[in-house]
Amino acid sequence: MAKIDKKVVGEGEIQVVAFKLRKEEYSFNILNVQEIKGLTDITRVPYASDFIKGVINLRGSVLPVIDLKKRLGLMDTPYTDDTRIVIVKVDDISVGMVVDEVTEVLVFNQSEIEVAKSVDNEIGRFISGIGKRGDRLVIMLDLNAIVGLTDELK
């Protein structure tokens, strides 16, 4: 589990759950994150979109799981002990996201966030901004786009 930042989130601040995909650091807004759980059995679902890894059992409910690296067009890496499933909720849809490692909970000031306008590559449309802290760059992801609510659903 990531440790919770002691700081109270103030005006113009965004609290995010940061995690790693390959070497880079990404994040979801903490308000969307429901829980983080270890890797469990994922049942493959035939005919689903290729970025959908399958479905898992979360205390009796069946949830789809998205392979985030595949969704963002990143190269695949094997699962490790650090691999986690981050359960997020967007517009009443609960979805699991497979990530390589959950690092921590961060609070960014608005001034530390650069709004993504033209990140010129394949994954540009999934990015809502980039948080900077010293040398560290944390890419903030747009969950709506990732879950596929804003454009092609399948």
Binding site: V45, Y47, V55, V62, L63, P64, V95, V147
Partner: peptide, 17 residues
């Protein structure tokens, strides 16, 4: 169990358990 909106309308699979 339903598989949720994201997987609605899948061919061949009617649900999960």
């Amino acid at each position: 169990k339903t598989m949720g909106k994201l997987l609605a309308g899948l061919k061949v699979i009617s649900g999960a358990t």
